[in-house]
């Protein structure tokens, strides 16, 4: 899992929530609706299964982490707050 040649994270932890919200709003959201940290992205239909894959890729790149497919579960991705908390448990590469 740990790599030494990977680029450093391009989003600082403090900026992760606003940057992730901005990314979801611009590149993933399936309709116009203000997103907050606690917004349920799945039951509102804002994010579909391809959207989840896009978000995982973005988090891996921006936070320089590797996300195990087995960790891509509902409890980690229902809201932006949950995603940020989950990424916080990962060790940057």
């Amino acid at each position: 899992m740990e790599r030494t040649d990977a680029p450093a994270a391009s989003t600082e932890p403090a900026d992760l929530t606003p940057n992730l919200i901005a990314f979801i709003e611009s590149d993933v959201a399936l309709h116009d609706e203000p997103i907050e940290g606690a917004t349920d992205l799945l039951l509102t239909g804002l994010v579909d299964s391809l959207g989840v894959v896009v978000i995982v890729d973005w988090l891996e790149h921006e936070c320089a982490v590797t996300i195990d497919p087995a960790d891509v579960i509902l409890d980690h991705f229902q809201t932006v707050d949950q995603m940020v908390a989950f990424v916080d448990t990962l060790t940057p590469r």
Partner: peptide, 13 residues
């Protein structure tokens, strides 16, 4: 549920 559908790992579980 629709939310589970987006997560293959949750779906398999």
């Amino acid at each position: 549920p629709d939310a589970v559908m987006r997560f293959p790992a949750s779906l398999a579980q």
